[in-house]
C-alpha cells in the first residue's frame, strides 16, 4: 500500500462526493421551478418541519438566552458594564445563536428523518417504482422538502429569537435584579433591522442545506438497513458541519457589507 496513493484516493473520493452533492443541489433547484408542483406535499412537510419543531427549538432557544444573560453578566460585571447584557443577548441571539441553534436542532430532527425515509424508499425500490409510475422523484420527494425547509427555518428562527431574548430577560430581571423597562429599552435600542434580517437569511440557507443533504444522503443510500443508518448519520454530520462553515462565510459577508 502506497500511502501517497491512499491519500490521493481519499482526496479524489472527497472531491467526487462534493461534485455529486453539487450536482444534486443543481438538479433540485432546476426542478423547483418546473411543473408539476405538489402543494399538498409541501404543506405536509411545512407542518412537520415548522410546527413540530417548535418545542425543541423553543426550549433550546430559551435556555440559550438564559445562559447568555448569565454568562455575559459574569463577564461585564468585572468592569462595571452590566448595561451591555441586554444588547449582547439580543445581538448574539438574532445574528448568531438563533439560526445556528435552530439549524442544528432541525438538522438532527428533520435532516435525519428525511435521510431515513428517502433511504428506506431507495433500498425497498420505492423510488424505482415512482419512476415507473411517471413521477419524477426529485419533484415528488426532494423539492417539497427543500422548499418547506427554506420557508420554515426563518420562521422558526424568528420564534427562537423572541424566546431567546425572553430567556435573557427572565434571568436578568428575576435573578440578576435588572430593572424591567430599562432592560427592554436596552434590548431594542441598539438592535438594527440588519441584525434580524441577516439571521433570517442564514436560516433560509441552513434550511436549504439541511433538506438538500438529508435528501441527498437518503437518495444515494444503498445496502439495506445498514446503508440507511449510514445515510442518516452522514446527513446529520454533514449538515451540522456545513451549518457552522456556511455560518462563518455568511457572517463575513454581512460583516463586509456593513
Amino acid at each position: 500500500m502506497n500511502p501517497l496513493a491512499t491519500i490521493g484516493r481519499v482526496f479524489i473520493g472527497f472531491l467526487a462526493g462534493l461534485g455529486r452533492i453539487a450536482l444534486f443541489a443543481a438538479n433540485t433547484v432546476s426542478h423547483c421551478v418546473r411543473p408539476p408542483f405538489y402543494p399538498s406535499l409541501i404543506a405536509r412537510q411545512m407542518m412537520d418541519i415548522g410546527f413540530f419543531s417548535l418545542p425543541v427549538v423553543g426550549l433550546t432557544a430559551l435556555f440559550t438566552g438564559m445562559v447568555l444573560a448569565l454568562q455575559s453578566y459574569t463577564g461585564f460585571a468585572r468592569f462595571q458594564a452590566e448595561g451591555a447584557v441586554a444588547t449582547v443577548v439580543v445581538l448574539s441571539m438574532t445574528r448568531e445563536l438563533g439560526p445556528v441553534i435552530a439549524g442544528l436542532m432541525v438538522a438532527g430532527r428533520i435532516g435525519a428523518s428525511m435521510a431515513a425515509e428517502i433511504g428506506t424508499m431507495r433500498v425497498t425500490e420505492q423510488i424505482d417504482a415512482l419512476v415507473t409510475l411517471s413521477t419524477n422523484p426529485y419533484k415528488y420527494l426532494v423539492v417539497p422538502r427543500v422548499l418547506a425547509a427554506v420557508a420554515m427555518l426563518p420562521i422558526l428562527v424568528l420564534v427562537a429569537d423572541v424566546i431567546g431574548v425572553l430567556g435573557g430577560y427572565l434571568v436578568a430581571v428575576y435573578k440578576l435584579n435588572f430593572n424591567m423597562s430599562s432592560y427592554l429599552r436596552q434590548t431594542v435600542d441598539f438592535l438594527e433591522w440588519m441584525d434580524v434580517i441577516s439571521g433570517l437569511v442564514k436560516a433560509a440557507v441552513f434550511g436549504f442545506l439541511i433538506a438538500m443533504l438529508g435528501c441527498f444522503h437518503g437518495y444515494s443510500s444503498g445496502g439495506g438497513a445498514q446503508g440507511v443508518g449510514r445515510a442518516t448519520t452522514n446527513s446529520v454530520v454533514s449538515a451540522s458541519i456545513m451549518i457552522l462553515v456556511v455560518d462563518y462565510m455568511l457572517t463575513e459577508l454581512f460583516f463586509a457589507t456593513r
Partner: peptide, 30 residues
C-alpha cells in the same frame, strides 16, 4: 415510461400511502 407498468419482485409499495392510493398512484399522478 408512461407506457410501462412494472411489478417489482419486492412489491415496492409506497408505505406512506394507503393500499388504494398505491394502486391509484399512476392514475392520479401520471
Amino acid at each position: 415510461n408512461a407506457r410501462f407498468g412494472m411489478l417489482f419482485q419486492g412489491a415496492a409499495l409506497f408505505d406512506s400511502l394507503t393500499v388504494w392510493e398505491n394502486v391509484a398512484f399512476g392514475l392520479m399522478q401520471g
